[in-house]
Design a binder for these strands. Structure first.
Lengths: 217, 217
DNA sequence: TGACCCAAACTGTAGTACAGTTCAACTGTA
DNA sequence: TACAGTTGAACTGTACTACAGTTTGGGTCA
């Protein structure tokens, strides 16, 4: 570790900051799914030029939270059964592949820690934190694959998923969440690959089913 | 199938067309790795406004061929040992997970077809087409996962990889390429998952090694 | 040789303008 | 009343201009 570790010049652009800010707002629900991001309005409100907003939104597009439609501009993504299914299918493939590998100690520790945090959050009834740690748990599982590219890909999907969970205001009972993750963790700990795969599949099936039910209303 | 299937109005913007065009040019080697895309020069040459070019380049960024550096603008990505390794690691994880699944007939057919095309191209000594069909072969393997999201992710990586292969002007003997893919195809056909996994690992190890050797010069 | 400085080139951002598109409200008609 | 047609406001896509701040590739000077 260098003495200068962590020291870094502030190196960012207005557009990047705007993108980050907008991303936060969208995640927080300031814009609902399907909403258009009107450039002039945002530009005026934030006191920046419209082209800067356009750039910010293009950067936002990288995260997958908005997509561009010709002559309609940026539109916040909206969950559909197909999209949710596609998202969870990809998750299932990655996570089941991941648990076939034998965890290194620090990897197992990371997963265990995430589980403990889910348990804590559940005890406190902090639903936002439950979701957060839930996703961290699965990210830690994917990390078993030892692939930065797949980690990044999964993180991007997580961002999308978190947004869907937010707008659908999905809420299982905390006990269920803890129980479902405990069986996965146990299977991983025991090195029982088949069972881990089965539990992940079950967990994901349940989630998809619940989300689609929410969506149908 | 609707009677209107496939009918679609041409709906694209100048920026999108520019992004497509630039992408092609980069893939064709008009810009080398590490090159900067100078906005004013491109804008002047193509007779469009600079902000339109900026937008086009932001769109390009989505494909991963360029990345933005503050105050330096868009820079064409350059291969490094780390990046190549990360790319191939992700490929290895996906492809080995894929061959654990039992192919449906049409999937097996797609893989076989890609292999036949590699063989054809090899016979004709058409190296560009060998690379193209090689990548198609692997895309067909990933398709075994039945996940559109992962297909898209892999396609994006393929684009990046194709560029690296191009700039490194990698060239194995066509016979080697055919031989390596034949053993993979055979293992898949026989339903021998372990052997398919092993062959894919071997294939990828060889590729990484060759590329890094090229890179060291 | 190396530190320093400078000007050219370029990016990031602002601001204005306008043609073309979308969309919702309004109008007229059967 | 239902529907086709029209209109206008709002908004996007694109162009153009401008300028401050940053990078960069020389020079200059010690």
């Amino acid at each position: 570790m260098s003495a200068l570790d962590g020291l870094e010049v502030r190196r960012t652009t207005t557009a990047q900051q705007l993108a980050d800010g907008l991303s936060e707002r969208i995640m927080a629900g300031a814009f609902g799914p399907g909403d258009r991001l009107r450039e002039s309005a945002i530009a005026a409100e934030l006191g920046v030029a419209r082209n800067t907003i356009r750039e910010a939104v293009r950067i936002l597009e990288l995260t997958g939270l908005v997509r561009y439609e010709v002559n309609r501009g940026a539109v916040v993504i909206a969950p559909t059964p197909e999209k949710i299914e596609a998202l969870y299918t990809a998750r299932e493939r990655l996570e089941t592949a991941a648990v076939l590998r034998t965890p290194r100690p620090e990897q197992l520790e990371a997963i265990t820690r995430a589980f403990d945090e889910i348990t804590e959050a559940a005890a406190e009834g902090d639903t936002a934190r439950i979701v957060d740690r839930d996703l961290a748990f699965h990210q830690a599982i994917v990390a078993l694959l030892d692939s930065t590219r797949l980690d990044e890909f999964f993180a991007a999907m997580t961002k999308e998923l978190r947004f869907y969970l937010m707008v659908l205001s999905k809420s299982e009972t905390p006990e269920e969440v803890v129980a479902q993750h405990r069986v996965i963790l146990d299977a991983i700990r025991l090195g029982d690959h088949d069972r881990a795969v089965a539990e992940i599949r079950a967990h994901i099936d349940v989630s998809v089913e619940q989300l689609e039910q929410l969506l149908r209303r």
